[in-house]
Design a protein around this nucleic acid. Structure first.
Lengths: 227, 227
DNA sequence: AGTATAATAGGAGATATCTCATATTTTGGA
DNA sequence: TCCAAAATATGAGATATCTCCTATTATACT
């Protein structure tokens, strides 16, 4: 992880969008953290020291279940918060957060900004709105996703996690995330290869027919409620 | 729907829990609305005129999908909000809300309380916390639910929607909610009857072995993350 | 380096679930 | 009152998905 220093930092913090979200006076605490793909932003169980706001990139959220299996819970992209729940109520068990691509975040040290943020009406309003959108997005997704076979959900997952045309998630994690057996995931992946959508290259897969994958994936959301 | 008048009203509004959520000065706008089972609290698409806070009972949230099918989205119980998203941002398309049992709500006319609530730090904090819990609950549920066959999810659904030991949801709606085909739902229901868990009585089902149903249902949440 | 553990890979049979087809009954208006 | 639409029921065959099994690599730890 790399922290960016003053001049460049000012540049980001003065963005209009950020003015509309974060209160005056928070600039002095703002840092900018850059993470490489694969780097851990937070280790599961650790009290996160920062409230992050994603400026660019994408991260994965992990959680270890009681049976010891690690489950990929979801992805977060630009304009998402990390550590928002812990900011609201410290007792929450934090999850593992890993950068899935090169990711740049605004980072506020929790101890310094908690008071300020939790007493700022604009920030709280934004946070509530952010969460309400997330809830709607989740429930729309959930109700739809049950209705489609793995083929469609896998297409979406591949597009979500691909980098530069290369898909290389661990099958064990993908299976957990998609809620299917490892065996069946392999089966459908093999079908994709057979149909020429993917090309296997060692342990990775090269996306050969992105447009078809997109078509299969978007059919899930053709009837989705919210964007 | 019945509105409750002054003396009784005061009684509810002075509850400690409510003091901790809603700002001073809101009492003058507070109303108490009672709904009978089956009564509609909000008609889909109507701008809800009230922000509701459920004091007791249970409601169902409906949504009409683009294909015209009506889907049961979820249930809300005590301490839940109705109309919170619309309070935050009016443009949201409201859903249909129907009382599933006798339900009593605190009701605040949106036009009168929006300003007050959206500028109250305590309320916003509570709302954000409420939403963050909902998010966690949803995602825990989603990740778990995919992993279990209909048998378990149906057991949970029956317990959730049963009243006085009688289950009488429409099969079409239940199938939508559970994300399975109508045919399969009937199949599993028939199994339940055959095993003596339910007893068919005309168009209703009588719960015969609630403890077994509970066991099947809770097995879903044995490894759940949050309560 | 060597060994245990996790990840990859694929076969085969069992289940869960879907689709389609068809008949009957309810229900909500014209 | 009657009709069209929706809900209930059930059968049969097709698919999706699971479980169990067995091998073969990677990976991590000693």
């Amino acid at each position: 992880m790399k922290k960016i220093m003053t001049e460049t930092r000012q540049h980001f913090i003065e963005e209009d969008t950020l003015q509309a979200i974060f209160p005056k006076g928070i600039e002095q605490f703002a840092e900018i953290h850059d993470f490489e793909a694969g780097e851990f932003i937070n280790v599961e169980g650790d009290e996160p020291a920062y409230l992050y706001y994603i400026l660019s990139g994408k991260v994965k959220v992990y959680f270890t279940q009681s049976n010891g299996k690690v489950a990929l819970l979801h992805f977060l992209g630009t304009h998402s918060f990390i550590g928002d729940m812990e900011l609201l109520e410290a007792r929450y068990y934090s999850k593992g957060i890993q950068a899935s691509q090169k990711t740049r975040c605004l980072a506020f040290p929790t101890v310094h900004v908690r008071e300020l943020l939790l007493n700022d009406v604009t920030f709280l309003r934004h946070l509530a709105l952010y969460m309400s959108k997330k809830i709607m997005h989740n429930s729309a997704k959930m109700s739809q996703s049950l209705a489609y076979p793995l083929e469609n959900r896998l297409a979406e997952f591949i597009l979500m996690s691909e980098n530069n045309g290369i898909y290389k998630e661990k099958h064990t994690e993908a299976a957990e995330f998609l809620g299917v057996s490892y065996r069946h995931l392999l089966h459908v992946l093999a079908q994709f290869v057979e149909r020429g959508l993917l090309q296997k290259d060692g342990r990775c897969y090269i996306l050969r027919e992105k447009s078809i994958l997109e078509e299969m994936a978007t059919s899930i959301f053709a009837t989705a409620i919210y964007d």
